[in-house]
Amino acid sequence: MNLPANNLAIKRISASAEPATPGIREMPEIAKLVDISRCIGCKACEIACKEWNDLKVEPTYNFGSYQSHVDLSPDTWLLMRFNELEIDGNLNWFITKDACLHCEEPGCLYACPAEGAIVQYENGIVDFNQENCIGCQYCVAGCPFDIPRFSKETRRVYKCNMCIDRVEAGLEPACVKTCPTNAIAYGTKDDMLALADQKLTILNNRGFAKAAIYDPEGVGGTHMMYVVPHGDHLPDYGLPEKPVAQQGAMAALAVFKRIGAYMFGAGILATALHYLAVGPESPDSDNGGG
């Protein structure tokens, strides 16, 4: 199994029988906090993401939305989604920063059958290692947020890695760095939760009574959180209300596999014991009569 030689301690490894080697370094969980109410829709974060990660520019077209592209792709790891909706006769913009949320309980990692193709670091970043990826796309189905994208060209899956190379060097992710309105904050998960509470109070005071923090429990919380002005309209933001990682089912499958291995071994052993007990059955003579 090839793992990247970076300095971050690993917490979880996909399809690994062994738990990650416990690290001694103290690495707090990090998080991004996206305050949708501060987003002006400039999409500088999309460009910064492409530039930092050396991702191909994809031609697009006007499909009647303020959005740059229709969907995420292997070359587009971040897409600002602009959903227009009328509420009480007023036009509302539901903006979402569609990119990997870096779940604490990552559905992609649990679903992945290729050892080391997906790793989770102590700081919360969930990263894909394409050299271990077999292109099965189970992560695509396992992700409750529909984030990973399969490249038909390389037959591997790609997504946002929270600029792990920047984070490792003590820098903030490129999208955070570039945001002109500080709509994306970055820091330890604890600090971001505290900041989210402050932002929630501000939104409540501005009249957004249903404003909410999006840090869903079903996936153990995320390392990209949202503060959304309309917390009662999560699906309109494209955010699932109750995302789950299905770690229970995957753990059960692992038990099945263990039992299966024993049964396969027992089958071979049983035939061997049968042979030793009764031996081969051959005709007494081969002239056959007839």
């Binding site: 679903a111 796309q137 695509v140 189905a141 992700c143 059960a252 499958l253």
Partner: peptide, 26 residues
């Protein structure tokens, strides 16, 4: 084609496929 099918069906089919394959192996 896992991207075509939802996560729930995929998990069920992974169980089923594994159990059937085990039967075929035996």
């Amino acid at each position: 084609f896992p991207e075509v099918y939802g996560s729930g069906l995929l998990v069920t089919m992974r169980f089923l496929h594994f159990v059937l394959a085990l039967g075929a192996g035996l």
